[in-house]
Computed example of a mutant assay.
Amino acid sequence: MTFRLFAVTTAALALAVAGCNKTDTTNGAAPDQPAQAAKAAGDQTIAAALDKNGRFYQAAHAAGLDSTLAGPGPYTVLVPRDEAFGKVEGALKDSGNPENRAELTRVLTLHILPGTVLVDDLAKAVDNGKGKALIQTMNGETLTATKDGGKVVLTDSSGGKATIVDGDQKRSNGVVQYIDTILTPSAQAAPKK
């Protein structure tokens, strides 16, 4: 499982980096942004700054992603507010169950973007993309960013929408964007027999 997650994460990161040079509507970050984020945030990583009693951190810990979020990054993490977890079923509802780890990892990596992506970066990408921008996630899927009333809204493949409600919490290894809803990965194909 660890190798598979690493391979998926590496592939997603490679796709995101390759896509950054092709269009302004992907996760492009200026070369000095990680250094600026580190300077603004000091030595505190994303993992260290997250509320250890919060539902997102507990789920990330259960999936083994807390060590990733303590790593060098840079990452942008879309952290759903605790209230959003009360509306979900499945792996997120019972994140402590080891049988849910693969699905939990799949959901959580949809909430992690490679690089440092600030709210203004997303807003500019939406403007440059004539109303929308495609954002690559660490699980290999794409979110669509749009704006609604001056706020950035992220839409998953199933049409679920999350609004960034508190953004640009800079850390030494990236940035945290708090959102109001949990995004959902696309349905997995049934295994072939």
Rank of each mutant, 00 (worst) to 15 (best):
K170Q: 15
A133Q: 03
N97L: 05
K192D: 11
E89Q: 13
A91H: 03
K130L: 11
A145Q: 05
M138R: 08
L110T: 02
I135A: 00
N53C: 06
R101K: 14
E83A: 15
A63M: 11
A62K: 07
I164Y: 09
L15G: 14
K124P: 00
A47T: 07
L154A: 10
P34S: 04
Q44C: 05
A63T: 08
G129F: 05
Q33P: 00
P185I: 14
I46F: 01
K147M: 13
T68A: 13
D156G: 13
P185Q: 13
G131S: 02
G131A: 05
D51V: 08
T25A: 05
G129P: 09
D127P: 00
G115V: 06
R4F: 12
P80Y: 03
A12N: 04
G28Q: 11
P74F: 01
A60D: 07
F85C: 07
F85M: 08
G131V: 06
A125W: 02
V119K: 11
K87W: 03
R81D: 14
A12D: 06
I46H: 04
G167K: 05
A162F: 02
T9M: 14
A91M: 01
E141A: 05
T116C: 06
K22D: 10
E99H: 05
F56C: 05
T142V: 13
D24E: 12
L143H: 01
V153T: 11
Y178Q: 14
T184E: 15
A102P: 06
S95A: 13
L143T: 02
R106C: 00
L78F: 02
L78T: 00
H111W: 06
G71S: 15
G131L: 03
L110I: 02
A30N: 08
D166M: 09
V88A: 02
A11M: 11
P80L: 09
L113W: 01
T45Q: 10
T45A: 06
T181W: 08
Q58R: 15
N53E: 13
V107F: 04
P72H: 10
V8G: 03
Q169T: 12
G90D: 08
Y75Q: 01
H61N: 14
G86V: 06
G19P: 03
R171L: 08
P191V: 11
D43S: 15
D148G: 05
D148H: 09
G129D: 10
V117D: 00
L50D: 07
K124I: 10
G159M: 10
P31K: 11
L143V: 07
T25H: 09
K161D: 05
R4G: 02
S95H: 11
E99Q: 13
R101C: 02
V88Q: 03
A40S: 11
A91Y: 00
T116P: 02
P114C: 01
G42P: 08
L69E: 00
T142Q: 14
D66G: 10
K22G: 05
L50C: 08
L122S: 04
G54Y: 01
I135F: 03
A60C: 08
V126I: 08
T23H: 09
Q58P: 02
V88R: 04
K193Q: 12
V152E: 08
H61A: 15
G86I: 04
Y75C: 01
V107C: 04
A47Q: 07
D51R: 11
Y57T: 04
G86Y: 04
R106W: 03
